[in-house]
Amino acid sequence: MKPYIETASAAGLEWVKSSYSGNNGNCVEVAALPAGARALRDSKKPHGPALVFGAEQWGAFLAGVEAGGFNLA
């Protein structure tokens, strides 16, 4: 699996933005890929590239979020 998608909007994916995102345009969107992988893109650049994470990488990221590893406070 490539670590990126060159043209995210042309990939035919359903992109989802967090319900916690405001209307300031600074959002990250995620799309489900086969085998539990995920793609991430910048909502300000929907036609630009997207990063791709395998299921194991995505799971490790979520575990870090749930453990508070990314809290800025």
Rank of each mutant, 00 (worst) to 15 (best):
A50V: 08
I5V: 07
A11K: 05
A67H: 04
G59N: 12
E66Y: 13
N26G: 15
K45G: 12
S9N: 05
S19N: 11
L40N: 01
S19K: 08
G25H: 07
A10I: 11
L33Q: 02
S9G: 06
V16N: 11
K45T: 15
K45W: 15
A55M: 08
S21V: 13
A31P: 09
F53K: 02
V30N: 06
V52C: 03
A11F: 08
A35R: 05
K44R: 08
E56T: 08
A37N: 01
G48Q: 04
L51V: 04
A10F: 13
V28E: 08
G22C: 10
V28L: 13
P49F: 12
A37P: 00
A55P: 14
L51H: 01
A39H: 00
G36W: 02
L51A: 07
V28T: 06
L40D: 01
E29G: 10
A39G: 02
N23V: 13
Y20I: 15
L33C: 05
S19F: 14
L13R: 02
L40M: 06
L62N: 02
S21W: 15
Q57P: 08
G68P: 02
A11Q: 06
F61L: 14
V16P: 00
H47E: 11
A31D: 05
F61Q: 03
A31I: 03
E66M: 15
A39M: 07
V16E: 12
A50L: 04
R38V: 15
H47Q: 12
T7C: 15
G64E: 13
G68V: 12
H47M: 15
I5C: 04
N26A: 15
K44F: 10
A63G: 09
L13C: 03
A11V: 13
Y20R: 10
N23K: 11
L62K: 04
G22E: 12
F53P: 01
G22D: 10
W58N: 00
D42L: 09
A63S: 09
G36M: 09
R38Q: 07
E29K: 03
S18G: 11
F61W: 02
L40E: 00
D42Q: 01
K17H: 11
V52K: 00
G25D: 08
D42T: 02
G59S: 10
A32H: 07
D42C: 05
N24H: 11
K45D: 15
W15H: 00
W15E: 00
A11E: 09
P34A: 08
G48P: 06
R38E: 06
W58V: 00
E14S: 09
L51N: 00
G59M: 12
A11N: 07
A37H: 02
S19P: 12
R38F: 10
V52A: 00
A8D: 01
G36E: 05
K44M: 14
S18C: 13
K45Q: 14
N26R: 11
G25V: 09
R41L: 05
G54Q: 08
A11W: 05
I5G: 01
Q57T: 04
D42S: 02
S43R: 06
A8V: 04
N24F: 12
N23H: 11
W58A: 00
G22M: 14
P49Q: 06
R38P: 15
G59I: 14
S43W: 06
Q57A: 09
P34F: 04
E66Q: 12
G59Y: 03
G64Q: 09
A55Y: 06
S9L: 13
L51R: 02
C27L: 11
P46I: 10
Q57R: 03
